[in-house]
Computed example of a mutant assay.
Amino acid sequence: MPNSLNPFELIARRWQPSARFVERAALATVVMAVVIVVTGGAVRLTQSGLGCDTWPKCTPSSLTPTADMGINGVIEFTNRMLTYVLCVFVGVLIIAARARTPVRRSLTRLGWAQFWIVMGNAVVGGIVVLTGLNPYIVSSHFLLSSALLTVAMVVWQRAREGDGAPRDLIARPARQLTWLLVGATLALILIGTVVTGAGPHAGDAREVHRIPLNWQEITQLHVDFVYIVLGLTVALWFTLRAVRAPAAQRRTVVELLVVLLAQGVIGYVQYFTHLPEVVVGIHMFGSCLVWIAVLRVLLAQRERAALPAAAPAPTGDHEGDHETVQPEPAASSR
Rank of each mutant, 00 (worst) to 15 (best):
L230K: 00
E217K: 08
L188P: 00
R172E: 14
Q176N: 03
G203L: 10
L236E: 02
R160I: 15
V154A: 10
F142G: 09
L232P: 00
V223A: 05
Q249M: 10
L188G: 02
V223Y: 04
R251F: 13
D204R: 06
S145A: 15
R206Y: 03
H209L: 12
R172K: 01
G164E: 03
V243N: 11
Q157W: 01
R175M: 04
P135F: 15
Q249E: 04
Q176T: 06
R244K: 12
L180S: 08
I228V: 07
S140K: 11
A248P: 07
A184M: 13
V155F: 01
A248F: 05
I191M: 01
H209W: 14
L236H: 04
R244A: 04
L221F: 13
V155K: 03
Q216M: 09
T150S: 10
A198F: 04
A242F: 04
S145K: 06
H222Q: 13
R210W: 11
G197W: 12
I228R: 05
T219I: 10
A171E: 15
I211W: 03
N134D: 06
D204T: 08
D224A: 03
W179G: 03
G164T: 04
Q216I: 11
S139L: 05
P166K: 10
S146L: 01
H141Q: 01
W179A: 12
L177Y: 14
G162Q: 00
D224E: 05
V229A: 02
A171Q: 13
V229L: 12
P173G: 12
H209R: 14
A171P: 12
Q220M: 07
L149D: 14
R175S: 07
D204K: 03
T239Y: 06
L240F: 11
L190M: 08
T196C: 12
V223P: 11
A165V: 03
L144A: 11
V195C: 00
P212G: 00
D224K: 01
V155E: 01
T219Q: 07
W215A: 07
H222N: 14
G197S: 10
I211Q: 13
L213I: 09
R172Q: 05
F225C: 00
T239R: 01
L232E: 07
L133R: 04
V151A: 03
V154M: 15
V194N: 07
L236N: 09
L230T: 08
L180I: 08
V194H: 04
L221N: 01
W215E: 07
Y227T: 10
V194L: 01
I137S: 03
I137G: 03
